[in-house]
Structures are given as structure tokens and as C-alpha cells.
Amino acid sequence: MENRIVRLSFQSPVHFGGRRLSDGECTCDAATLFSALYIEALNMGCADDLLCAAKAGEIVFSDAFPYVGEQLYIPKPMVALARTASPQRQEPSDSRERKAGKRLKYIPLTALDSYLAGTLNFVRELEKFDLGVSFLRTKVNLTRETSDDAEPYHVGGFSFNPECGIYFIVRGSFDVQPLFEQLGYSGIGGKRSSGYGRFSAEFASAKPFDGMLETDPAGRSMLLSSSLPREDELTDALLEGAKYLLRRKSGFVQSAAHAASPRKKRDMWLLEPGSVFVRRFEGDVFDVNVTPGAHAVQRYARPMWMEV
């Protein structure tokens, strides 16, 4: 299947949060993207087609990762690094190097071989990674139904530097370009009513990833999307030799048509991008409805793999 890169260039700040309104992250996961595209597909009358394609694995999304100029970044693979005495890298005993290595969440795609060989200078890469700035703004709730005092609250966000933004990898034949174009006007992430998250999308080939996104790898594979194996896939054999991190995903249904009041979604623990496996799994689009509503509520959790 065809792989494409979709680069998002933002005209406004973004609000990608975790569990708090005050969070201000610079990226989002594949489930956030899929939910946003699905809402646009509902308005365009092709939601069932998009959902069926996702469930059948005919369209696959990565999480969002940063780009700076022409440099694409990928998650830092969770692998044991080779020990080397190369002069390009500080000695392992250098505390600055160790601390920089822990703080470094993304590495340049072009530096993957250096990272695996243990020659990447973490301090230098951390200094070069200038994506933008996170911020925290204080706003006031002027609704005074129960109080005469205005209630302040804090909203986090992220503003990208010029020539910086995030990109997704999209695999499959389903035409998502019209959905991305429409989503650019609506915005992605939270606080869209305040103008956050609006972007323009640029589609390009996935040539920088040539030879890395093979569907039948010879060695170990790294996750490029937050995902979860199906129950029948979650075996001891799958976890053998794997290195991974889990992150809890929760929240409320963002749909006024679902119920008269906000309903909580079922909590899930997803494998984070950068997790490395010897064996692959297919994942699914999972039902996360806790209480019945007017329509289904699902979380996208299919993996996209990259050979490392």
C-alpha cells in the first residue's frame, strides 16, 4: 500500500493535552487524528467508508511527530544502544550527556543509524531541537449562575516556530486529502472555538522512509502509533524480547449527539510510539462506550510499524 507524509503547518497555536486543560503538548496521537477526521467525514457523508477502511486495515495512521524545516523527527527507539568510544559522542560517564539522553524524546530520521550505533551526541541534538514554545494562559469564566465572582482557569497550548510543525504518515488507498483540507478550517485538538489548531496540509511521498516501512520485516520493529493488540494477539510470544511503555488514555465523549450530558469513555492502556517488538500485531479500532448513547464511540488503536 502507498505511504504518504502529511505535513501540517499551523496558523494558530494548538492545544494537545493529556488529562488537564493546562497541558500544552506539541503532538497528538493517531486516535486524536482519526476522531477529528471522522467528524469531518460525518459532515461529508463518508464516515462509514472511513470507519470500515480503518477496521479492515485499509487505511493506517501514525501518531504526529515534529518536523523542523526539512528535517523529520521520529520517536527515540526503545533499544539498548551500542557502546562506542567515538569522538562524536561524549563519554557515557558525562552527566550532561546522560541527562540529555533521557530528555530527548525525538531524534532526526537521518540520525537513526547514528543513534543505534551509539554515536549520536544527545546534548547537541537537544540544543538543535527548537520546535516552538509552550504557554499557559489565564482565562475567566464569566458564567455566574451560582456565584457573583468570575472564575479564572488556565489553558495550555503550544506555538510552533516558522518552518516547524507536525506530520503524520498515512498508509492506504483511501483518499483522506479532502478530509484533511476540511479539517484545516475546523482545527485539530482542543479549544477550537477559540481559533486553536487551524492548519494547512501538504501531502508528499514517504520517500525519506524508503525501506523502513516494510510490511514483512526481517528484524525488530518500532511502533509509530499509539496502539493495542487485540485480546487474541496479546500472548507471551508477542511480548518476548519487546521493550515498551504504556500510557493510560481516558476522557469524555466529545459529541453533543451522543447524550444530553458528557459521558466518560472507557479507559485504555496503549503502547507508546518508540516501543520495539520482535513480533508484530494488527490491533483494532476498539469500542470505548461505557454507557449507551445515540452512536458508537470508538478509539483508533491500529499500529504502524517501522523496521529498526
Rank of each mutant, 00 (worst) to 15 (best):
K139M: 06
N289F: 08
L72I: 01
V253Q: 07
S95F: 09
G172M: 12
R299A: 04
F160I: 06
E202D: 08
S250A: 08
M44L: 14
M268C: 12
D232M: 01
M304N: 13
S193N: 09
I107M: 02
E202R: 14
R263Q: 13
P303D: 04
F65L: 06
V123P: 00
G165Q: 15
M268I: 14
T32D: 04
V170L: 10
D210C: 01
A82V: 01
P217I: 01
G197N: 12
G24P: 07
K264F: 02
W305Y: 07
C26I: 02
P303M: 01
V170F: 05
R263V: 12
G189V: 08
P92K: 02
L136S: 10
L50D: 06
D175R: 11
A206V: 07
I107R: 01
T215V: 12
T84N: 08
E145W: 08
V297N: 14
C46L: 11
Q11E: 10
L120R: 04
E97S: 07
A56Y: 07
V253F: 11
V176Q: 02
R266E: 14
F16I: 01
P292V: 09
I5D: 05
N289W: 08
V170K: 10
A237L: 13
V308M: 14
S147V: 00
L245W: 04
R248C: 05
A256H: 04
P208Q: 08
G189S: 09
L213T: 13
P273N: 05
V297G: 08
E145N: 13
D232N: 09
F203E: 06
D267R: 12
G189L: 06
K207A: 11
A56R: 08
N161H: 13
V79H: 00
L126V: 09
A53S: 15
H295W: 07
E231N: 14
P229H: 03
S227W: 10
E307N: 10
A36N: 05
V123Q: 02
N3R: 06
L8Y: 07
Y115V: 00
C28G: 05
A56D: 10
N43F: 04
L109Y: 06
T119R: 00
G24V: 03
S9F: 09
K265W: 04
M44Q: 15
F286T: 09
E58R: 15
D130K: 15
R96Y: 06
D130R: 15
Y67I: 05
L179P: 08
K207Y: 11
K207I: 12
L131K: 11
E272H: 01
L131F: 15
V308K: 00
T143S: 00
E91S: 10
I166D: 02
L112I: 06
A201H: 12
K243A: 11
R98L: 09
D29T: 13
A237E: 13
S35T: 01
